[in-house]
């Protein structure tokens, strides 16, 4: 796997803390500083309860920090109103989840098209771009199938197509291979590696060290803090 030059900061957490609860406080994240740059393929690892999912939610602006800032290409997003924050999230970040989270009554094509709604695109343009995204994950032949008619691997590839159809700056994946068999997991990781580009970063949250070994940067977490952040030679 060749390394890609790293450049501008796409997504950063600046002194971010996240505390849950009112009477009993749970410090899920403590004063985290993280910078994700274009071209990076990184993983966030840690045991259960280490705060990696909380961090993914904050990186994806699905959640707001108790303190600190989240910046997308330098713009502080946690202070923006919901509509603006949602628009930025839709444009800058693509999500892939362990449980795929496809809309069950939509076809693969319909699920991918969902990411392009409300962007003032014609139906024809939405369809064209969605088919292109499906082609990148080799699923055009399943475009008219619903999730229930597809295997787990195909569903995850559909989810990846949905994540990349908007051409996001960062792809955030939460345990993307967790629900897949070894073969499908390997295929999915290959796709993730291929998503990296000079303009884009790919970030995978996992507890699987093999998956983490395939990335070029590994961030280890424990008790809501980053305990190590190291570059590594990716092992495919």
């Amino acid at each position: 796997m060749s390394s890609t030059p790293v450049s501008e900061s796409l997504l950063s957490l600046e002194g971010v803390s996240r505390v849950y609860g009112e009477e009993v406080l749970v410090h899920a994240l403590r004063d985290v500083w993280l910078d994700i740059r274009a071209g990076e393929f990184l993983s966030i690892v840690g045991p259960s309860g280490s705060g990696k999912s909380t961090m993914l939610g904050l990186l994806g602006v699905l959640d707001l920090p108790t303190s600190g800032s989240i910046r997308i290409q330098g713009t502080e997003v946690n202070t923006l109103p919901d509509a603006e924050r949602s628009r930025l999230r839709g444009e800058a970040i693509g999500f892939v989840f362990q449980q795929f989270h496809l809309v069950p009554h939509l076809t693969a094509l319909g699920n991918v098209e969902t990411a392009l709604l409300y962007r003032n695109l014609s139906r024809k343009e939405r369809r064209r771009r969605s088919l292109e995204a499906l082609e990148k994950v080799d699923l055009v032949h399943r475009a008219d199938h619903r999730p229930i008619q597809m295997s787990g691997g195909e569903q995850q590839r559909t989810a990846i197509a949905r994540a990349i159809v908007t051409e996001p700056l960062v792809v955030l994946a939460d345990e993307p291979t967790g629900a897949l068999d070894t073969q499908n997991a390997s295929n999915v990781m290959e796709i993730f590696a291929g998503l990296r580009s000079p303009e884009r970063a790919v970030c995978i949250v996992t507890h699987d060290l093999e998956v983490a070994a395939a990335t070029g940067r590994r961030i280890s977490m424990l008790d809501g803090e980053i305990v190590s952040d190291e570059s590594q030679v990716a092992v495919s």
């Binding site: 949602s86 628009r87 999230r89 990411a115 709604l117 409300y118």
Partner: peptide, 12 residues
């Protein structure tokens, strides 16, 4: 949840 993750606002 997934629609929100895809950028649909609360209003939408």
């Amino acid at each position: 949840g997934i629609r929100r993750a895809l950028g649909h606002s609360r209003g939408t």
